[in-house]
Design a protein around this nucleic acid. Sequence first.
DNA 1: AGCACGCCGACT
DNA 2: GTCGGCGTGCTC
Length: 716
Amino acid sequence: MTLYADVILPLPLDQPYTYSLPKEMEGKARVGSRVLVPLGERWLTGIVVGLRKRKPERAMKVKPVAEVLDETPLFTPQLLAFARRVGRSFLVPWGEMLQSAVPPSLFVRSRASVSLTPQGKEALEKGLLSEDECQLAALLGTRPHSPLFLERKSRVKNVSALLSRMRKKELVTVEKSVRQVRRRIRPEATRGSAQLELDFSSGETVFRAAGTISGAMAKKAFSPFLLFGPAGRRKAVYSRLLREAVSSSGRVLFLVPEISLTPALIEEFEKSLGDGLALLHSQMTDRQRELEWQKVRERRVQVVIGSRSALFSPLDNLRLIILDGEQDESYSQQEGLPFDVRRAARLRAEEEKAVLVLGSSAPTIESFQRARKGRYLIDLGPESFRPKVTLLDFRGRSGLIDPRLIRAIQERLDGHEQAILFFNRRGYASYLVCNRCGFVPSCDRCDLSLAYHRSEGKLVCHACRRTVPAEMNCPRCRGRLTARRGAGIEAVAEDLRRTFPRKRIEVFAADEAGRKKERESLLGGFEKREIDILVGTQFLAHKAGLPPVALVGILHPEMVLHLADFRSGQKAYQAISRAFRFLREEKGAEIFIQTFAPDHYSIREAARGDYAAFYERELEFRRLLDYPPFSSLAEVVFSGENLRRLAGTARMFASQVKTIGKGIQVYGPALAPIARMRGLHRVQVTLRARRTKTIAKILAQILPGIRTKKSVFFFD
DNA sequence: AGCACGCCGACT
DNA sequence: GTCGGCGTGCTC
């Protein structure tokens, strides 16, 4: 009797396809295994989600599975269920969710290769081809290429349509083959598992917090906690919990924001766990991730520590999920990364019947409120060290740096000390302007002015990262382009260099060219005290491992408040608190905050380090305007080349929601904040309801019928 | 997603 | 009349 396998494919097809299983594969394919299957003309990697004896009645034809890629399932049943739930919550097809959960190399697929036939070659030489055909044929003259390569290298508009025509005329052939990346992975020699000996010499609060949480862990049921307090104390609690979980042979998933992947933290856990630790983060190579994954799968580790990509680690008997730095934006739903890690971690903990511990000293308003309401907030008490903080009211002043801050820096430099300044704007100026005709150079693929990066002599689009050489003559009137406003960190550094000509001042920001080495050497230089003042953006604030200094300056944290974002208050608060980490814990250490908005509660309370006060004000604001956590929002962004059609689609969508969505408010359509990006117009519709589920349900109903490219962001 | 089909306007 | 745009439907 034949067996059939229900296979989920990494495509926006949200239902499984059924394939027959040849006799020799029957024992091998299991639920959760990868299989190689044919789909139309293509070969794809899919995941078996069901095995059954009876043929499906509906299917006209059933193709056989070509190959079973795992005899030990890649996904546990819990992981499969978890991926499906995350997908449902964020409107991502199950198969795509599964694909994004594992190292990319594990999903092999056929790649098309186009080659020129002898007839094609002849036609090219004789000049019998159309202009477009000629272009492709010329590219194929030397060797076969992928359609994608042809798309990129030629100027032909619709490559795939042209190719199919050329194929009919037998000018080209298209071959599809699966490039096999199959490696036998041998386990490395184990270093021997060490006992977990972490320092837990902390006070009563830590002891009690750990006790409460391990009590819940013992029950083997889902249970959430929010650990609110200073990093040191949180770590002490984590250490105890880890020990507890591991000693009863439970497994632990420890999620950290990108920043906290500090060598120090890893070293500490490595020391105590030896081989029992796996690391997974986005900066690892594919191969490294694959090896770590393998370790986890083979149950050679008890603890996985990593950033958002670690959420799908194939740990079984998962007892504890820690998500530290809960407020960090790297956990939020971002462009291209379809889900919010906080919510997804909760789903996984539910699925695995594990304990979830969120940790933060400045949690998101949403999580804090939920924890208070749900009575799972654990308060570890206030920071033991409070530095001196000075708010510099910049109203009525001009220039880039307050003289009072300059004086303070001067004193530090005189005492051979270093300083760090934060200013969250990259480059020299956010735009150039012609002083004669007012022309502002802007990106031709995005609706955004080009930022001036003077040190590199470039104009950079901060939306699409494209750069062009900076040309200071106005292309329209031959006037002069100047950087009059919108100063960035390069301008701040320039100012400092003028003031302190003998000192070494450097800037640190994410850049387009990805010159990672240079940046790392800057950090090294600062550590070796070769650099006196470091000026950085939020990107620097997310780096760990810098030696703390006695003076930190934060320039204009209120800039973020002007953005159209209901969470901007929280962002300002967090940006300020994050800067505190760079300060040395000693008596004379101090922080300066230079701002035009010294009275804004987010700035004031962050300066005072009073989260509770900030929380009350922010929550009140959210309540008044009915923002999350009091309501749930979803932002649906449609994008496409044709603005007219896009607008039509968005209007249609909005009216559909209005008709069938009960209890949903619809705002828009409106242009997205960046109305065009990479050549695509962007139109958005915002939805509001009491509950996220209400919105997700309606969207799941309407969106599949809309083919226009879209992305959905949830805020709750 | 990719790919085929089939329908309409604009050019050899 | 074909070419080439893109809307629609299908893939076990």
